[in-house]
Amino acid sequence: MRKQSVILRTAAHVLLPLLLLFSAFLLLRGHNAPGGGFIAGLVASAALALYLFSLGIASARHALGVDPRRLIGAGLVIAIGSALPAAFFGDAFFTGRWLTLDWFPSGPLKLGTPLLFDLGVYLVVIGSVMTIVLTLAEAEERPDAPSNEGD
């Protein structure tokens, strides 16, 4: 991959944490307002893709920390897991179940299976987008790939 501009590299360093934070915000907001796992996952993958373009494949893989395919697996497990609690109570799969925690002075915190499902979607989206982007980027860098001219 060609050497990228200093501006882009510096910006990527700053933007990655900010965008990841923003994606977490979108994920949590999606529970009762526009937002949600899919859009949050796309924001996070866009951040990682930007990182990849400016700093190269190796550092993007390092920033991701895990094999993106594992992320897909983990996300799917979580999403399926969110369908199961209802079954234990005798409801249809995917029926929403909430756990209310009222330990906080600001009011009760309600954690529900829809949030769990969103989290699963979030991970699946990051995993699949990064799998595709990394596959394409690595194919681009392979020495045996045909050059664009003269074929």
């Binding site: 697996g73 983990a74 799917l76 399926i80 079954a87 249809a92």
Partner: peptide, 24 residues
Amino acid sequence: MRPEIALPILIPLAAGALSLLAWR
């Protein structure tokens, strides 16, 4: 509630997810 209706979808999904986790 008849869980058997959803099982033919959930089982392969779960198996697929687990085999993604056991990638190596």
